[in-house]
């Protein structure tokens, strides 16, 4: 599925507080074009919030966001989000629309494709995740793994330059995790720029080519999977790895 043009993504000195609760305390992150970066860290470390700040679902209090080297903070946030696909832990498919319509909807309304062309593209996208035959049914009739693959198809259909995954496999039954992770691996191999918040250390270690370890709203370590998993420099990462592995 290498029909996309991916771009690099940079966050500079990102700060965010909810009242007195400082969630992000100066995050610097750079994900090179075509790189799959996994973001790991204990819960409450601000990983999911970081994703939402970088696609401006939540506006940062301070800092800058660059897509392909250009600041996007002054852009229309809705247009920015069309360039960044996002996949959620709870899938968040639209339950009142068919599987095909879940994918076709934004193509019609946002990419302004004519109805039959939007549907054809939706089917094509669903075919890539192995669910073309489910286009006519409601999402609720699918398994969690299937729903998440539809959610990935929905995001990819917008031809994003970057893909965000927010704990995309955490809500899945163990036997369904593999199919979704495989899809994400294929996407990474095809050169999509990805930021993957995950608890799947196997994915982080074997598939991603950059690992970002966050704790307490800051990036504690950042580097290749080999560096972080075999030679963690900080005590915090050492402790985290011994807790999860």
């Amino acid at each position: 599925m290498s029909q996309f043009t991916s771009g690099s993504l940079t966050g500079k000195n990102l700060h965010l507080a909810f009242g007195s609760n400082k969630v992000l305390r100066g995050i610097d992150i750079h994900v090179e074009k075509g790189t799959a970066a996994s973001v790991i860290g204990p819960s409450g470390s601000g990983k999911s919030t970081l994703l939402r700040v970088m696609n401006r679902l939540i506006e940062p209090d301070q800092g800058d966001i660059l897509l392909d080297g250009r600041s996007v903070l002054k852009d229309n946030p809705d247009e920015l989000r069309r360039r960044i696909g996002m996949v959620f832990q709870q899938f968040n498919l639209f339950p009142h629309k068919s599987v095909g319509e879940n994918v076709a909807f934004a193509l019609r309304k946002l990419r302004k494709l004519p109805k039959d062309q939007a549907w054809a593209e939706a089917l094509e996208q669903l075919d890539k995740v192995g669910l073309k035959h489910k286009a006519g049914v409601r999402p609720a009739t699918l398994s969690g793994g299937q729903q998440q693959r539809v959610a990935i198809a929905r995001a990819l259909a917008m031809k994003p330059e970057v893909m965000f995954f927010d704990e995309a496999t955490s809500a899945l039954d163990p036997e369904l995790v593999k199919g979704v992770l495989a899809l994400m691996s294929d996407l990474a191999k095809d050169g999509m720029t990805m930021v993957v918040v995950t608890h799947e250390m196997g994915f982080s270690r074997n598939v991603s080519n950059q690992v970002v370890f966050m704790d307490g709203g800051v990036v504690v370590e950042n580097g290749s999977p080999e560096q972080l998993f075999t030679a963690p420099k900080t005590e915090r990462l050492q402790k985290f790895l011994s807790d999860v592995l």
Binding site: A140, L142, R149, A182
Partner: peptide, 22 residues
């Protein structure tokens, strides 16, 4: 009852999962 979840075997996952390391 329309909301009731019907779980189906994730047959397509196996195909996609081929050759990938999870």
């Amino acid at each position: 009852t329309g909301k009731e979840q019907k779980h189906e075997p994730d047959e397509a996952a196996a195909v996609i999962g081929k050759g990938a390391h999870a």
